[in-house]
Amino acid sequence: MKVDELKLELNAALGTTQVASLCVQLIDQLVHLDDAHGQMLTYTSLQKLLNYPEIDTPLVSAVHFLTSSRYALLEAHGQLIDDDGDEYPLEDVDFNEVLKSGFLVHPGTGEIVIDAKDKVMPYFALSLPKGLEWAPK
């Protein structure tokens, strides 16, 4: 599928909304990232890619749309930053559990993490669909 077709379908799905516009802008940036540069995209990374003023609800919604719809270009993951400041990438099953219920065991110690939702940082990895075509920058 060509990227332009993807953007048309997306606009048809979301209508003339700010979220749709942000999705289109994100697609334009993401397709020009290679795998090495798309391993850990945070909300801040995506905000900076778009030169967007802040991480607001429309931006968060646009990012979520691009992870969870049939137009998904991003995979969502999580990383625990524990009270010692150490980083622990989470298995996807554990990340999904903390999103759903707030329950998390520390990947290093196996002990329950108190207030886990406040200690897990979401991030996104580039996952362009196979066969997606776009013109080079």
Partner: peptide
């Protein structure tokens, strides 16, 4: 033991761990 090591060890014996030590 770190939890990841304990999980591998338990699984190697057919003991499926639950979520965390508790």
């Amino acid at each position: 033991m770190p939890w990841p090591v304990a999980r591998v060890l338990l699984r190697s014996l057919g003991l499926e761990p639950s979520q965390g030590w508790q």
